[in-house]
Nucleic acid binder design. Structure first.
Length: 457
DNA sequence: CGAGGAGCGA
DNA sequence: ACGTCGCTCCTCGA
């Protein structure tokens, strides 16, 4: 089976691959294959024992039939409502186009960044940010201009409405399977080099969240008659995993006590007994977020809208109060430099070949990848294990509820009303107990509803 | 048809 | 000069 040689080599060396295991099974064996032990043994003996992280290989193989079932199941969407939203969006877009025409006295294609940049310059509006081809007119730039120039807000609205209508209305409607009347996404099992999956055709992992039209669109994902949607998502999974991997006492303690981690960081960043304002908490939340990505003062400053000096002080304060995190990062970087790879708690590897590169930009970029991968990757492993366990329990107990979607830290189920209480308990139990009992507590928020927006809670 | 810009998610 | 991981739509030019 030469295919497996190639594929497993890709899996283990983290080469990005378009086709995951489940696609192979779909193509070559059809939907009926369900991960028989014989097949697994054949595969394992074929790969041999030279792969130290065969634990991950085994995880991925167990996941194949789960993903096949999810893809085959698909999800129902309210096509009528989606079309109505589309009409409203188109009306808004036409209105904006008219307003722009009246404002500037000419007809331009607002979907063309090139034409937008030229228009703004003709109007005497200064542009400074550059990209490869000219002046940038992205969201950051236009938001900056929006205070002084009405045209900027119009362009921003036009952009977001166009995005929604083209990607999340028209394309979604086209993706409905004529036979099943449902939308069947396609998971790339190892779509990301961190171990995360990706979703395509259509991508159901980037359905808009938030208010307004975005909320409306999400509410078009519905259960079949007699069922409800159940959404279970991990609360701050990556920070909890950082606490687990680093063993940092302050982080650990916060989660053990069930306290607000962003407020805790805010106390550290400002002063211990201060009253935490929402602004302070917002800053702390951003800092917490950035630590996971492999922090730079410059980037944090840009994100906070402050100067790098202040951002660097936040970072220093963070590491002073969570000292084991810094120690953990140093260890990870040391291993990466020595071995050329980093790994998750479950030993999924990512090779970081440029970690010792002479070019500072390339090297620091590699360092951020090295910092981020064990955290993001362990979170991915945890959810994949939970999915296997949940799927297995569903079949053992002959339940008719189905697991439909995975969105990195979230699972979506379609369950008969009669099984609601069983699923609430089952899903929580499996998702919260992947890591060892002695580890940091993992929290899962679960809600049900008559559509995806409502069930998101 | 591919590159580049832009924007959606975790 | 800098934000980790993805996918998709649009424009524009070969």
């Amino acid at each position: 089976m030469p295919f497996f040689d190639v594929h497993i080599a890709e899996l283990l060396s983290n080469t990005r691959t378009r086709w995951g295991f489940s696609e192979f099974i779909e193509r070559e064996l059809g939907y009926e294959w369900d991960g028989t032990p014989e097949m697994k043994i054949a595969l394992l003996s074929h790969v041999g024992k030279e792969y130290p992280n065969s634990k991950i290989l085994s995880l991925e193989m167990d996941l194949i039939p789960v993903l096949v079932r999810m893809q085959k199941e698909g999800i129902l969407i309210d096509q009528k409502k989606l079309r109505e939203i589309g009409e409203n969006l188109r009306a808004s877009i036409r209105k904006i186009e008219t307003e722009v025409r009246e404002l500037v006295g000419e007809n331009i294609n607002l979907s063309s960044p090139k034409q937008v940049a030229e228009l703004l310059q003709r109007l005497g509006i200064p542009l400074t940010k550059k990209n490869k081809t000219g002046f940038s007119v992205d969201t950051d730039v236009l938001e900056e201009l929006a205070g002084k120039h009405d045209i900027a807000r119009l362009i921003l609205d036009h952009r977001s409405y166009s995005k929604l209508v083209s990607t999340y209305i028209d394309a979604l409607l086209k993706s409905v399977n004529p036979t099943t009347k449902r939308v069947h996404t396609h998971y790339n099992q190892i779509g990301a080099s961190t171990g995360r999956m990706s979703s395509e055709d259509p991508n159901l992992q980037n359905i808009p969240t938030g208010s307004g039209y975005a909320h409306e669109i999400k509410s078009c994902f519905i259960p079949k008659n007699g069922s409800v949607l159940l959404v279970a998502d991990y609360s701050q999974i990556e920070l909890r995993i950082l606490a687990f991997l680093s063993g940092d006492p302050a982080l650990w303690e916060t989660f053990i006590r069930g306290e607000d981690i962003h407020a805790r960081t805010a106390h550290f960043l400002f002063w211990e007994n201060a009253e935490i304002t929402s602004e302070m908490r917002r800053i702390a939340k951003t800092v917490n977020f950035w630590v996971i990505y492999g922090i730079t003062g410059f980037g944090l400053a840009k994100s906070l809208g402050t100067n790098p000096k202040e951002a660097n002080e936040y970072i220093e304060n963070f590491f002073r109060e969570y000292p084991w995190v810094r120690k953990y990062y140093d260890t990870i970087l040391g291993k990466a430099r020595e071995n050329g790879y980093v790994e998750t708690y479950f030993w999924r590897k990512r090779f970081i070949r440029t970690i010792n590169d002479a070019n500072r930009m390339i090297r620091t970029s590699a360092e951020r990848e090295a910092i981020n991968m064990p955290i993001q990757g362990t979170a991915a492993d945890v959810l994949k294990y939970a999915m296997i366990e949940i799927d297995s329990a569903i079949r053992d107990q002959n339940l008719s509820g189905k697991m439909l979607l995975q969105v990195h830290d979230e699972l979506v189920f379609e369950i008969p009303k009669s099984e609601e209480s069983i699923f609430l308990e089952l899903v929580r139990e499996k998702m919260e107990h992947v890591l060892p009992e002695s580890s940091v507590p993992i929290q899962v928020d679960i809600h049900t509803g008559m559509n995806w927006a409502e069930a998101k809670g």
